[in-house]
Computed example of a mutant assay.
Amino acid sequence: MFLITWLLGGTVPTKKTIKTYEYKSPPLSLFERLFLDRFWAALPGAVYPPWLAPNVITLAGLVCIIVAIALVLHHSPALDGAAPTWVYAAVGVLIFLYQTLDGSDGKQARATGTGSALGELFDHGVDSITVVLIAVCVQDAARVSYTDETLWLCVAASTCTFYLSNCSLVAFGRQQFFDVDVQELIVCLTVLCLYCGIVGATSAPRWMITGSLCCMVLNCLQLIWKLRDTEYLGRRCKALAAIAGGVAINAATIKQVSKEPFFATVPLVCCIAAAAGDLSRRLLLQRVADLPEIVDFVTPTGLLLWALALWPGRTRVVAAAASLAFYGVAASRTVVATAGALGVRALTVPTVRRSARARTPRKLD
């Protein structure tokens, strides 16, 4: 029974274990204070109809990034900037749409009175995947190449930063953001991709890539310092180290496992995204429910990420498919169980709640 539960992604919330808490908005970063927050707040009612569920908006943002990474990997599997210019223009637009949808789903939740712990779980679960995929898209626009270890170090660093940010959410009840943080970074990446959509992929100077990596490491260190007196620097950092180690060993062996860029990069990107998403899902479950933890630095998706470093040739797609399947099943179980425990609907706005939203606003999103 333990093995089956482990393979299915661990235990899930029930009505007895679900927590009740009040959502606390994180501090706004610079661009959010200047213009982003007002832009997002204007969308419910003006663009979003009242019957549109916030989680559907979140899913639409994920679809945007999946389309973006699919375009990049299809046209430039070696991540060396070989895609036509229109691909980078499309990626820039899709990243902008993702940021807009991701920033406004909570606004829609408050406008429709449908906020819940499920929305937070949904939102952060999607973000844990998109940080990986966006990092890969931008590295291609900068012509870094899949054989360059720095590319995968940047992917690992972005994953670590977001995971530690979620650790701060679980530890303190709200995420810890700085004046210059992820929203400012996404705006800059959008501009970069749109620029590449005009002139084509541009070889970024080495100092820019190294500088970006150093900034992410510095962000990680700041979050670790804030978490220093909590339990998350022990058990949770072991889980994070398992993923970072899996990325590192794949980066070191990627030249040997496959001579075909497509079968080298696509399975690795899929496995990293699935492992990062599953790791954040397990962490965020502790935010929404009182659950016994399974040792979460040994997971099916994590093991497949490590195994991929020794998986040769075209059969690597088997590992990628298995990793995505494990994560898909676990994420689906979590969403269905959490919705049932809370008595809410994941992808629809109930008619009763639509008519009563003005009388019974909820603070959770």
Rank of each mutant, 00 (worst) to 15 (best):
A171I: 06
E22G: 04
L73P: 03
A251L: 11
G211T: 09
S128T: 07
C270W: 07
C154S: 13
S116Y: 00
C160W: 14
S128N: 04
L62M: 10
Q286F: 02
G211C: 02
D105Q: 05
S29D: 15
T299P: 02
R362F: 04
A321R: 08
G61C: 06
R345Y: 08
G277S: 06
A252G: 15
L283K: 09
Q286T: 09
F172A: 10
A339K: 05
A142R: 10
L169D: 08
Q175T: 10
G234F: 14
D37N: 09
V47N: 02
R354S: 15
R282E: 09
L279Y: 01
R206T: 11
A251E: 13
V93S: 02
V199F: 07
P261V: 05
C215D: 01
G234P: 13
P49C: 13
V138H: 06
A346E: 11
G119A: 03
V63N: 05
L310E: 02
R236K: 09
L291C: 12
T299E: 11
T360R: 10
D102A: 07
A337Y: 01
I243C: 05
V349Y: 12
L347P: 08
Q222S: 14
A341V: 11
R287H: 15
R33S: 10
T100W: 05
S104F: 04
N250S: 13
L151V: 11
F262Q: 02
L324P: 00
L279A: 12
